[in-house]
């Protein structure tokens, strides 16, 4: 697994978590990621991931016309399958992060 794939997997998990907090759209997700310090994430890179997550059936989308005009906005909502995937991700992440922490603690 390359480092970008690792980051991709983590980012997918984080997006699942953000969407699980309520229906949201791309730009809002980026703002939330920013708030948590994910500044290394290129803004546009979430869209190919969101596309994949939709294909996997983890999220569903709906288009809404904004009152201010402009292009339609695409909103994402978590499915049941997405919730299961989020739980799986949390478990995987717990294992990985606690192993890394244990290892680094021992070193330091």
């Amino acid at each position: 697994m390359s480092s970008s794939q690792l980051l991709k997997g983590i980012l997918e998990g984080c997006l699942l978590s953000i969407i699980s907090q309520g229906e949201t759209y791309g730009y809002e997700m980026i703002e939330k990621l920013d708030q948590y310090g994910f500044t290394m994430v290129k803004e546009g890179s979430i869209y190919p991931l969101l596309l994949r997550m939709k294909k996997e059936g983890w999220v569903v989308t709906s288009q809404k016309q904004l009152p201010s005009g402009g292009p339609k906005r695409k909103y994402y909502k978590l499915t049941e399958k997405g919730e299961l995937e989020l739980e799986e991700f949390k478990k995987r992440w717990d294992t990985v992060s606690s192993s890394v922490e244990r290892l680094l603690d021992k070193e330091g």
Binding site: G26, Y27, I30, E43, Y47, P71, K72, R73, K74
Partner: peptide, 18 residues
């Protein structure tokens, strides 16, 4: 669908000077 979504994002980003 994808280009519409990206347009929306770019609009928001440009409004914030990105």
């Amino acid at each position: 669908e994808i280009t519409e979504e990206l347009k929306d994002h770019l609009l928001e980003a440009e409004q914030r000077g990105k």
